[in-house]
């Protein structure tokens, strides 16, 4: 899958780098001074690069753990995110990463220890509170776990820090790493889900919904706490029927008491990001619906958004208590 690996000079000798390059004996290894020489140059074409992305092994020097965007939380006052990787192996048409970076290469920061120090720093900042750390903001938390060993490195770390809750956001069925470990209370394995018809059409390369539900079932049976993320909600001709079917399938796979939290929110993009993505995919059905510019955002028309949100909230509350259900929107809009 990976045929080219760029390696920053500063991490050539890093133990994790040495292990990682052995995973790709056939790949061309190319040294670079900084990952920014290869990643996100102004004249790169995301769509062409996505045909054969390279892996870039790099070091992150600052900004390891950042406050999560407003509306991203699941009940806590203190929400942070950290990105050991930039970009995702999947190619979901609604993904903001397409509009965020001009490059489709995967950047893996190998200095995991510095992320962990930064997490400890945040815990010291708020000594009496529970803090949430989201790991799947700029990447899928698990999709490349067999390569990165992220789970093996971070679950034991969080196990000894019960005040810190880790969310692994994923669509991946790469759960071997988790199944090898004893489940911990302060980790939520959060699956992104859309109706199967949508997944097949717009989540290119991602595991089928059926496979994701099998992974959820397995993890829940082993005692891992499950998060369900119906975000973004996508408007389409049979949305009520399709979302009703999806929720029914989900709660057939997982018992409500195994669910840590559910969140859902409509598809929305900052205007500039929407323009970038629609330039990359001008004939994409996903963006052909009744969308409008509202303030700095592009979203479905107000009444459609409300209709979808109300419908999904009512349906979800048939399965789980209201307290577990969160909306992913700016606070001012909730």
């Amino acid at each position: 899958m990976i045929s080219t690996v760029y390696i920053e000079d500063s991490v050539q000798q890093h133990e994790r780098t040495q292990t990682l390059v052995k995973r790709f004996p056939q790949a061309t290894k190319i040294s670079c001074e900084r990952y920014s020489e290869v990643f996100n140059l102004s004249s790169q074409n995301f769509r062409l690069q996505k045909k054969r992305p390279a892996l870039i092994l790099a070091e992150k020097f600052k900004g390891h753990v950042l406050p999560a965007p407003q509306g991203y939380g699941i009940g806590s006052r203190h929400n942070f995110y950290f990105s050991h990787m930039l970009n995702c192996v999947y190619d979901c048409r609604y993904c903001f990463l397409q509009g965020m970076y001009r490059s489709a290469h995967y950047v893996l920061f190998v200095n995991f220890e510095d992320f962990q120090k930064a997490i400890d720093g945040r815990l010291e900042e708020f000594p009496n509170d529970q803090l949430y750390f989201f790991s799947g903001y700029d990447c899928d938390s698990l999709a490349l776990d067999s390569v990165t060993h992220f789970v093996e490195n971070f679950i034991p770390f969080f196990a000894s820090r019960p005040r810190a809750v880790l969310e692994l956001r994923t669509k991946s069925v790469q759960i071997k790493g988790l199944l090898k470990l004893k489940p911990i209370e302060n980790c939520v394995v959060a699956y992104s889900l859309v109706p199967d018809e949508i997944a097949r059409s717009v989540e290119h390369g991602a595991p089928r919904i059926k496979q994701r539900l099998s992974a959820i079932k397995r993890l829940a049976r082993e005692g891992w706490r499950i998060g369900l993320r119906f975000d973004p909600l996508i408007y389409h001709s049979n949305f009520e029927e399709n979302y009703r079917e999806l929720f029914a399938a989900v709660f057939e796979a997982v018992e409500p008491e195994q669910v840590h939290s559910i969140s859902f929110g409509p598809m929305r993009f900052p205007k500039a990001m929407f323009d970038t993505i629609t330039k990359l995919y001008p004939r994409e059905k996903l963006f052909a619906g009744p969308m409008e510019k509202r303030g700095a955002m592009v979203s479905y028309e107000d009444q459609i958004e409300k209709k979808m949100m109300d419908f999904c909230r009512d349906e979800l509350e048939r399965y789980v208590p209201q307290a577990l259900v969160f909306t992913c929107m700016q606070e001012s809009e909730i």
């Binding site: 190619d91 991946s172 069925v173 991602a206 595991p207 496979q211 389409h236 001709s237 052909a288």
Partner: peptide
Amino acid sequence: LDTTPIDFSHSSKMPSIQS
């Protein structure tokens, strides 16, 4: 366009990476 429902059931299917 605004009153035509978007139907995803006939879209092209892409292979899954299975990771």
